[in-house]
Amino acid sequence: MKLIIVGTGRMGQLIRQKAEDAGHEVLAMGDVLSPGDVPALSAKADAIIDFSHPDNLDWILSLSGSAALVEGTTGFDPSHTERLRAASVTRPVFYASNYSLGVAVLQKLASDAAKMLRGFDIEIVEAHHSRKADAPSGTALSLLDAVDPESSFDRVYGRHGRPGPRTREIGIHAIRGGTVAGDHDVIFFGPDEVVRLSHHAGSREIFVNGALKAAEFLQKQQPGLYTMDELLEETAA
């Protein structure tokens, strides 16, 4: 594949390294502030992989060509996801808050557990490195949607002071420190028992590997919006 990488930080550099190791050609790297050769070469790309900042999205969608888009930026609001949906009418778009296959399985397990453990109290805890900008993580929010798809529970982001007895709520907690690539726990508290579903990311390479798999997957797809669900289905086939 011929790739454009948006984002020149640690993730962007790692994506470039792994892509070239796998035999792909990286045409250019850049972002809206330092575009480099991206605008000139975008029409030649098979895929654009973006792990940068939400402010780059409109610039990416304005680039010439119809390259598939793998979107891995976190911190999107509903307007960003709606723009991705609109873009998917004319090109294949893959969007995930986390590109780990293990996290995708965790989301499915958490969804099933929430249906089978009705009446259990649910808490979500995530931990990331000290430089992560957003909290809670996009993955934690995806897990929240997996266990509460109808938003029927109050969502409590951390607790302090005297919050009083628990009501119909789900707690979401963010921890920051060190070089943690990403840990996520979904915990179900029942009478005299606790069920804990966990995922530990040993390094950022798992996200890079997933993003490259997504880019390869999109080469076979028609325009549309794709997620880790479709990639898991292909992996399991």
Rank of each mutant, 00 (worst) to 15 (best):
L143H: 04
N209I: 14
G177Q: 04
L27Q: 10
T74D: 02
H200F: 09
E169N: 02
A215H: 02
V6E: 03
G72T: 00
G224T: 06
P191R: 15
H199W: 06
L41I: 01
V38I: 09
E233G: 09
F207K: 10
T179V: 11
L231S: 07
A28G: 08
D55F: 14
A96N: 12
E234N: 03
Q107L: 15
M1P: 00
R131V: 08
R168S: 13
L57S: 04
G30W: 12
Y226T: 11
E25F: 07
S151K: 05
T139F: 01
G119W: 04
Q221A: 10
S130D: 13
D145E: 11
S151R: 08
V194C: 12
A113Q: 10
G177K: 02
D148I: 01
L69P: 00
S152N: 12
M228A: 15
S151A: 13
G182C: 06
L117R: 04
P191M: 14
G75T: 03
E126Y: 06
E230D: 14
L63I: 00
I4A: 05
W59C: 05
E230H: 10
V103G: 00
D46K: 00
G164M: 08
S130A: 15
N209E: 15
M228D: 11
H24Y: 09
G161R: 07
R155D: 01
G9K: 08
F188G: 05
G171R: 03
D112E: 15
L197E: 05
T8S: 12
